[in-house]
């Protein structure tokens, strides 16, 4: 970690998206993990961010309302029938 400024709670929060998205190099990641290992608050922040993204991903895979799906399907069948 030589050459890198020490990770603080503020700097961790500022870099957390880059960290989670894989935009940081190995030593920068290690510095964040080193801090989080001994700072419960930052450990929670990282978990919260992961959970938030997970919540969004889950929402995207949820089926659309049944009436919307039925209309979408009817439109497709109507279009392909006319082919």
């Amino acid at each position: 970690m030589t050459g890198l400024p020490p990770v603080t709670c503020d700097s961790l929060l500022a870099q957390i998206s880059a960290y989670l998205d894989g935009d940081l190099n190995g030593s920068a990641c290690a510095a964040i993990e080193h801090h989080a290992a001994s700072c419960a608050a930052c450990g929670r922040v990282i978990e919260d961010f992961r959970r938030t993204t997970g919540l969004c991903r889950t929402a995207a895979t949820a089926p659309l309302p049944a009436d919307v799906r039925a209309r979408a399907r009817a439109r497709v069948l109507e279009l392909l029938k006319r082919r």
Partner: peptide, 16 residues
């Protein structure tokens, strides 16, 4: 120094 080189932020957390 306790530096793990294998444990990283998930590079594909939100890119699929």
């Amino acid at each position: 120094m306790d530096v793990s080189v294998t444990k990283r932020g998930n590079p594909h957390l939100s890119s699929t």
